[in-house]
């Protein structure tokens, strides 16, 4: 399944969830399933600034079957709701080329998830900070590629 198809699945799942409890439970379940980062991966380099709780994101590059370089992300947080949000972001962004990552309009997709209304302003800021970090990791990779 492509990342976009996966996220479309999540969006349609969310559409059925009427109350906030179910939406939060879904996010928390995603968070529980997220593989934790190793302790040494939680370092100042991987830390996302601007989140109210602690968030770390790392990226790894791989070569896709098409021969293109793609990026995969892993992340972690000490808060469960935030772990769930990270899981959503990783679903959306992982295994794509840096260019595709940079061209993606995440805010439109997340608007479909109607998450912002369930997120406090400080959380929504942190969410944007995570997207910025993913984009900056993709930009670094894109530059490396251009130089190579």
């Amino acid at each position: 399944m492509t990342p976009n198809a996966k996220i479309q699945n999540i969006i349609s799942d969310f559409a059925y969830l009427q109350d906030w409890e179910d939406r939060y439970r879904t996010i928390i379940d995603l968070g529980k399933k997220l593989a934790p980062l190793a302790e040494d991966e939680k370092n100042p380099n991987s830390k996302v600034q601007g989140c109210v709780s602690q968030v770390w994101l790392v990226s790894e590059s791989a070569i896709a079957k098409s021969g293109e370089k793609i990026l995969a992300f892993r992340g972690d947080s000490d808060a469960l709701i935030v772990r769930g949000l990270i899981a959503l972001l990783l679903t959306l962004y992982s295994n794509q080329t840096p260019k595709a990552i940079l061209n993606m309009d995440a805010s439109a997709i997340f608007a479909d998830l109607q998450l912002e209304e369930h997120l406090s302003p400080s959380r929504a800021n942190g969410f944007r900070a995570m997207i910025k970090k993913i984009q900056s990791l993709a930009r670094d990779e894109d530059r490396l590629e251009a130089r190579a």
């Binding site: 906030w20 409890e21 939060y24 709780s53 947080s77 000490d78 808060a79 469960l80 709701i81 935030v82």
Partner: peptide, 12 residues
């Protein structure tokens, strides 16, 4: 639960 998690649900 993280303190933020607790506070988020308490707010609800």
């Amino acid at each position: 639960a993280h303190p933020h998690d607790l506070a988020t649900i308490a707010d609800r």
